[in-house]
Amino acid sequence: MARAQAARAKMQRLLSSPTPFSGDDGAADPAVTRALDALDAGSRPRHLLLERLWSALAASRVIVPVEAHALPARTRPAGPTGPGGKAPTHPVHTADASRDAATLAVELPDGHIALPVFTSAGAMLAWRADVRPVPVEPRRAAVVAYEHTDQLWVLDPGTRDLRLPRPAVVALAGGEDWVPSWRSTLIQDELTAQLSGLEGVTAVAFAPGQASELRILLRVDASAGRGAVADTLAACQEVLVNPAWGELIDTVELVPLPA
């Protein structure tokens, strides 16, 4: 009896204790909405607006979707409540909503797997009506994306389908500031050192990408003919497919320029 009373008292304390999101009404954070509206309007260069959006997301909360019974890892014990005197053996949740949400990870057009993350309960409802919204800290959602997906978020799938660059998610998971590759001197210096050492590359420059995160402008010696240029570009690709770049640069476009 004493043990049961202690357990009941502990549960009451847990239920009565405040949570960071106890008053959350499911609406989007105004700063996030403003950043998304600016991105839609194209009022400034896209790469600058992405940085603004990341900062707004990092300072807010996000919503992850959780199914009624998401995980198959555990089952409820038998009891007198189900048909035939046994309790249903459906899966139950973990204590981590973000980890539960990883079971609903979505495949992006390029084949990568991303964690679905929402700015509001309404955006999640537009995606699927059979899941419930759970507000979480952005860093926790980023950690789960890092551990259980291809280190990616897709923001408001079904409406915006906005892919947050992998390095932005990695930085958020680590509690660090995101320094995008298009303005990171460390990344650019290392890329320049590796690419400039290849035969045929005479100069390297960088810019924010249009269809990708980073645009690499390569001055290539064309005096030896198309075959030599093709070999040079293939060697550049070999450098860039190194998995070590994956957490530093999401996507790259090479732009060769004749020397």
Rank of each mutant, 00 (worst) to 15 (best):
A41E: 15
G42Q: 07
S43Q: 10
S43F: 00
S43C: 13
S43K: 06
R44C: 00
P45F: 05
H47N: 04
H47I: 01
L48V: 15
L48Q: 13
L48W: 08
L48H: 12
L49S: 10
L50E: 14
L50G: 04
E51C: 14
R52Q: 15
L53G: 05
W54M: 12
A56Q: 00
A56V: 05
A56W: 00
A56P: 03
A58H: 02
A58V: 10
A59F: 01
A59V: 01
A59D: 11
S60K: 04
S60D: 08
R61S: 02
V62N: 07
V62I: 13
I63V: 15
I63W: 04
I63D: 04
I63H: 08
V64E: 08
V64Y: 04
V64N: 11
V64M: 06
V64S: 07
V64R: 05
V66C: 14
E67W: 01
E67Y: 02
A68D: 08
A68R: 13
H69I: 02
H69G: 08
H69V: 07
L71S: 14
L71P: 04
L71H: 04
P72Y: 06
A73C: 10
A73N: 14
A73R: 14
R74K: 14
R74E: 10
R74A: 11
R74Y: 07
T75C: 02
T75F: 01
R76Q: 15
R76P: 03
P77E: 12
P77G: 08
A78G: 10
A78P: 02
A78Q: 06
A78N: 06
G79Q: 03
G79K: 12
G79A: 10
P80E: 10
T81E: 13
G82W: 09
G82E: 13
G82D: 11
P83E: 11
G84S: 10
G85H: 08
G85Q: 07
G85I: 04
K86V: 11
A87L: 01
P88M: 03
P88N: 00
P88C: 04
T89D: 03
T89I: 02
P91M: 00
P91A: 00
P91K: 01
P91G: 15
P91E: 01
A95P: 02
A95F: 05
A95Y: 06
A97Q: 05
S98R: 07
S98L: 02
R99G: 12
R99Q: 13
D100W: 05
D100I: 08
A101V: 13
A101L: 03
A101G: 06
A102W: 00
A102Y: 01
A102T: 15
T103M: 02
L104T: 14
L104A: 12
A105M: 04
V106G: 06
E107N: 12
E107K: 14
L108I: 09
L108G: 12
P109T: 11
D110E: 11
D110L: 09
